[in-house]
Design a protein around this nucleic acid. Structure first.
Length: 569
DNA sequence: GCCGTTTTCGGCCCGACTGTTTTCAGTCG
């Protein structure tokens, strides 16, 4: 899969072109192409081979050739040429808040500033003030921006962002002038990581909201404060933007601030085609506002049915909405049980009984306790004699808790050759067998893919867990040839997991959608190591919704006896 | 650079906030 590589090349080109001051729409063409290639469910190399690249929206004659060049040579002459004009560090400088392409270029030309390090030095030395359009305040802002750049290069994981946002919303709700309030932005779309938190409020007294918001106790800096829009950084270094609109525009504003940018652009194009104007205040025919109070009304006025926030990525949702073929997305309450969890028998922090109590609280019909296998010493993997003891423990609890089925399972290690860490005679006795890779991440893609396929081919393996191994913030995913892996999964009836842990979310939205299209069944699990982790299920559901999955695509929405697991009927 | 039941050329989404510009450009989302 070179999709990501190609997207990165296009993105880099767009950034260099921006600094060079090229045509704005040419820049957007590269950005759009990068987005579309990245979210493409198909392998771009196959498309290139079949000469079908132009079927991708945003890929024309020129980009078709550029993709083919990257696929066959691994490089792109055009990008190499561009890099000769613009030092690499300049592209990095765009990541400093407040520095855009124009400023970056000007600083390079006037002061030969080539990267963030030089930028900081010159700003600290007071060399930037006095340049055209640059005052003392701008210089201060650049230094503040560099601070943010250094600290906040990472994005927030979905759990951190969700917790922070709902905490802030709970406090803002107490202001009596707040009428409606909602998260917006990528958080509302439940993207796997979030850069900042957007909150939308409707109120008749925007100034009061702005004052109350910027006066909250955990505000460290106020980075902007206007009559209807303010931005702050919290003491935890999280950026929060609040925007206030009138109630009559709440739906329009919610739509606008939820995005994505690409989704919004498409909506506006649609409005223009219908002779209407769309902005964050509503839909207008001439001067007359014809919609704006609710999102539902906004979509209807454009001839569309309501589109769930998780789908708003311009990945075909507008077309599907217009043609009334949007998916009926899976919901948290559809989940009947969790098939991947750990206990104190291996590296979990809660006993089996605590896990079972947690699962009952969620109303589950079943929970699988799938502790690690013997060779995973570091995670307290269980030898075969311990398995017997664990089984006895479970049987005792099964008699105690008759309203939930406790499944005896394992997360069995797939070794570097693709062999499993327990013999078939042991696996055969398990209710649930999850295969997972825990070492050998650096193997070439073909080897890793072979390991996964081999695990699928074992008739006792029901599920492949966290299929790409990524741990956001600490480990990148290993590369898997999903076309081949999904084919093996479909042919053998093996399910793939969406792991709900915020640092994993693996499969991700793009891969999970690809799995569905390849006819592979999905299981959404938490991989809980503590009873309270069982609540992470909502993040896996978010990934599934972003992948267009419906209830029927996910095995653990079914009652135990009806679950279409391999060898279970 | 892409794209087309109004177009193969001329379009391409829209507005708030900031700083220093006395009328608006740059940045951001």
């Amino acid at each position: 899969m070179k999709n990501k590589l190609i997207a990165e090349v296009f993105r880099e080109i767009s950034q260099i072109l921006e600094i060079k001051g090229e045509n704005f729409f040419k820049i957007r063409a590269y950005e759009k192409a990068a987005e579309n290639v990245e979210s493409l469910p198909d392998d771009i190399e196959s498309l290139a081979k079949e000469d079908r690249l132009k079927d991708i929206t945003g890929i024309g004659k020129d980009l078709d050739e550029k993709i083919k060049e990257i696929v066959s040579t691994g490089k792109l002459k055009y990008l190499d040429e561009l890099k000769k004009d613009i030092p690499e560090g300049l592209v990095d400088m765009l990541k400093v808040p407040g520095i855009g392409p124009k400023t970056a270029k000007m600083l390079y030309e006037k002061l030969d500033i080539q990267d963030v390090v030089m930028l900081e030095r010159m700003a600290a030395a007071g060399k930037i003030r006095g340049l055209e359009g640059m005052g003392e305040k701008t210089e201060e802002n650049i230094l503040a921006g560099i601070d943010i750049y250094k600290k906040g290069r990472e994005r927030l994981d979905l759990k951190t962002a969700t917790d922070a946002a709902y905490n802030m919303i709970a406090r803002l709700k107490k202001i009596k002038e707040v009428k409606n309030i909602s998260p917006a932005g990528s958080l509302r779309r439940m993207k796997e990581t979030v850069r900042d938190i957007d909150i939308l409020v409707s109120s008749k007294a925007p100034q009061k909201i702005m004052d109350a918001f910027t006066g909250l106790v955990d505000v460290k800096d106020i980075t902007a404060k206007g009559p209807t829009k303010s931005s702050i950084r919290t003491k935890d270094n999280i950026q929060v933007d609040v925007r206030v609109v009138e109630d009559a525009s709440y739906g329009a504003a919610l739509m606008y601030f939820t995005g994505s940018k690409e989704h919004n652009i498409k909506l506006r194009q649609l409005a223009i085609k219908k002779g209407l104007k769309l902005n964050e205040y509503g839909i207008f025919r001439g001067e007359k506002k014809i919609a704006g109070k609710t999102e539902d009304e906004m979509y209807k006025t454009l001839g569309l049915s309501y589109i769930e926030p998780e789908l708003r990525e311009d990945r075909g949702e507008l077309e599907a909405s217009a043609e009334a073929r949007l998916p009926d997305l899976i919901k948290l309450k559809d989940i009947k049980g969790d098939l991947h969890s750990h206990s104190t028998w291996s590296d979990g922090g809660s006993s089996i009984e605590e896990m079972v109590i947690g699962a009952r609280k969620l109303g589950y019909e079943y929970i699988a306790i799938t502790d690690h296998s013997q060779s995973l010493r570091i995670a307290g993997g269980l030898g075969t004699s311990e398995l017997d003891l664990k089984r006895r423990d479970m049987e005792r609890l099964s008699r105690k808790y008759k309203d939930i089925k406790i499944l005896f399972g394992t997360e069995v290690d797939i070794d570097s050759e693709g062999n499993l860490d327990y013999p078939d005679s042991v696996l055969k006795e398990m209710d649930i067998v999850i295969g997972a890779i825990h070492a050998g991440f650096k193997q070439p893609v073909a080897a890793i893919t072979r390991r996964i396929i081999k695990a699928c081919e074992n008739k006792y393996v029901h599920i492949i867990a966290h299929p790409t191994g990524r741990l956001w913030g600490s480990r990148n995913e290993y590369e898997v040839n999903f076309e081949e892996a999904f084919k093996a999964a479909r042919d053998t009836g093996t399910a793939f997991e969406i792991n709900s842990f915020p640092q994993r979310l693996d499969l991700n939205d793009v891969n999970a959608r690809m799995a569905k299209e390849a006819g592979v069944k999905i299981v959404i699990n938490t991989d809980s190591h503590l009873a309270e982790h069982l609540g992470m299920m909502k993040f896996g559901i978010a990934v599934a919704r972003r992948a267009w999955l419906e209830k029927k695509d996910v095995l653990n929405t079914a009652a135990l006896g009806k679950m279409a697991l391999k060898n279970l009927g």
